[in-house]
């Protein structure tokens, strides 16, 4: 069966009733790829694209609340550097017009560009159930293992909450791929510095999940981002990530790139004063 409810509430009802027997689809950038490779879905499909109330971006209490159905094309327009640039690096224009942030989070690919940017922003994700209501989780607690998340079979991702630009001092993004577009990250990194001084650093394609480099972050807290500290952080990041060898890239390369990318994204967070410091 193919369901196409016109409200998110109706979609939630269907998901709660059918649980694992129904798969949500928006951009289809994962499910359709699987179908093209001859994999059978084996389940019903829940098309979320007709739910108009699933594409909204709202401001509330110093936060930005994105509906799960927010597309990468919409995210590209946001005034949040790391998220906008990550979104702009996803696929090509057609994919960005279809692909959604909830899809990125639900698929939980370690190379999910949107997931990495949201991790650096210390975003929260709202998981919703038709009867049980909603629950908010920090994204860092949401990713559990390779393509495993806290999202229940009977839930949908309703919202993502990120700090507004006014709570952010700066954020940065860098992605290495084999070509200029329609590109799976070999390694990607995002960093954000908040007005309260916190710094978050996240990487993609270097662990079973999109990961926050929490050990490296500890080094950075409350310290001016001097050249020496950046160097130290780069080494720490490289040591902290757990990449694998695959035919896309070797673990060696990915580790080395984490050091390079950590320094690059953190440099972009520096204040002018810090840039002068050794």
């Amino acid at each position: 069966m193919f369901y196409r409810p016109d409200t998110f509430a109706a979609a939630l009802r269907l998901k709660a009733d059918h649980a694992a027997a129904i798969k949500p689809i928006s951009g289809g950038t994962d499910l359709v790829v699987g179908l093209n490779r001859g994999q059978s879905l084996g389940v019903d499909v829940l098309d979320l694209t007709a739910a108009k109330d699933y594409r909204r971006i709202d401001h509330a209490d110093g936060s930005l609340i994105l509906s799960g159905g927010t597309t990468f094309a919409q995210l590209e327009q946001l005034d949040i550097a790391c998220l906008a640039r990550a979104a702009a690096s996803v696929g090509g224009p057609q994919i960005r017009n279809r692909g959604t942030i909830a899809g990125n989070l639900a698929t939980a690919s370690p190379a999910g560009d949107g997931s990495v940017a949201l991790l650096a922003l210390d975003a929260e994700v709202e998981l919703a159930h038709a009867d049980r209501g909603t629950r908010w989780l920090r994204l860092i607690d949401y990713f559990e293992d390779y393509r495993q998340t806290a999202l229940g079979d009977d839930e949908l991702i309703s919202h993502v909450r990120i700090p507004t630009p006014s709570a952010l001092q700066a954020s940065a993004w860098y992605k290495i791929g084999k070509r200029g577009a329609v590109n799976i990250s070999l390694v990607c990194a995002a960093a954000a510095r908040f007005l309260d001084g916190r710094i978050c650093l996240a990487f993609g394609s270097v662990a079973p999940i999109p990961m926050r480099a929490v050990q490296t972050e500890k080094l950075l807290q409350g310290q001016p981002l001097t050249g020496a500290l950046l160097h130290q952080a780069a080494q720490a990041a490289s040591a902290e990530v757990k990449p694998i060898d695959d035919w896309r890239a070797s673990a060696d390369y990915r580790k080395a790139m984490c050091a390079v990318l950590a320094r690059r994204v953190l440099e972009q967070l520096q204040t002018d004063d810090e840039r002068q410091m050794p």
Binding site: G180, A181, V182, I184, W247
Partner: peptide, 23 residues
């Protein structure tokens, strides 16, 4: 074309990397 023991690992356009207009 990347293969291992005669088995092609990247037999699709996601993984067989062709240049795009940006390249």
């Amino acid at each position: 074309v990347i293969s291992k023991k005669g088995r092609i690992l990247n037999g699709n356009f996601t993984d067989y990397i062709l240049p795009t207009i940006k390249d």
